[in-house]
Nucleic acid binder design. Sequence first.
DNA 1: GATATTATTTATCGATCGTTCCATATCGTG
DNA 2: CACGATATGGAACGATCGATAAATAATATC
Lengths: 206, 206
Amino acid sequence: MTETKARRRAGRPRVFDTDAALDKAVRLFWQRGYEATSMADLVAETGVAAASLYAAFGNKAGLFAAVIERYAATFSVHLYAPINDPALSTYEAVKGLLERAASSFSEPGTPAGCFMYSAAAAVSPASAAIECLLREKRIAAEAFLIERLQRGAARGELAANTDPAVLGKFINTIMEGMSVQARDGATLNELLSIAKMTLDRWPAAI
Amino acid sequence: MTETKARRRAGRPRVFDTDAALDKAVRLFWQRGYEATSMADLVAETGVAAASLYAAFGNKAGLFAAVIERYAATFSVHLYAPINDPALSTYEAVKGLLERAASSFSEPGTPAGCFMYSAAAAVSPASAAIECLLREKRIAAEAFLIERLQRGAARGELAANTDPAVLGKFINTIMEGMSVQARDGATLNELLSIAKMTLDRWPAAI
DNA sequence: GATATTATTTATCGATCGTTCCATATCGTG
DNA sequence: CACGATATGGAACGATCGATAAATAATATC
């Protein structure tokens, strides 16, 4: 029978806080993108020696993969919370999503826009796997939104002639565009007006 | 009185075709972005020696600036042609713009999406000027679209309660999102359905 | 033809890239 | 306390980065 009690790993314990380091790395990759962020930048920002980062994450790509998960756990989860909230109507869920996108993308304390959209928009062939990692996250997020809309359609919360897949792709497209807008300096109010214009045309059931 | 006839510049004439080299450079920067495209890549792709590229464009940033103008002259001009066409109504102009975006962003012969949106989405502080160059182009394009909508509003082609500035930013946001969608593999038909959904609830005058 | 000017070719520059080696430090276990 | 295992700090690796120096070639002008 295997040991059930959690046992501490042998060897010298890690002195730096992994999540704290990842939080700093998230900011850097978010602001500068994958290839424009060097390991030297990450060492300087996190205060963790290069060898320690490599021991913990393997290589730069591995660190970036961990950064993706960290961003998803700390930002995406909050952004998509309305989609998960069973108390909200489909309209209210999408309204919440778009309004959270507006505030999150223009939040002063973090880089503008969405990490998932801008951190690896265009990369070298050597980093194609990195681009693919983020692409899969974006596609999964869109599928997640579409599933919510399909449940809403099944409940009669959408106009009968509305295709949830198209509507979901449309809303997702607007969020992606809002990220570019935020990067270009769009204010919270401007992003909210984009969200409002999207919702004003909501294809509700009659 | 100055010489009116065009006079050939002294010295050894340039042997490579500047526009042909820029066309190749456009593809590279479009696909990989500014920082992920190396001078070695550009030398290999254009067949022009590094020293010749530096003599012609100054440095990598200067080459990129020339690439921006080349893209604008060969792609953006075509994309925004409906906005300039005085024979089109405001609705028709925006419809033409969005449909050209759909086809251009998914054109098989070129990298997916729009160069202006993805070539420098996130860069290092050292290349901040490059990011700014593209940002100014994006903002100018949005202003250009908004001016067209304002003329349309003055002609009574928009609903009275529609703010042309907000509508223009909304349409521009959708185009930016469509570029991300195209990068993620959206097909022409999917992009067209996004355009259609945008146009279906056009705030026309009653 | 002499001279000035510009382009091309080749080789190479210092800086920085991601990554790793090595000696040392600190843990759990026997 | 000894030993294996893991982490750390610092130095350094080869490769590639953007950019340039030097020598040569090809043009216009005088």
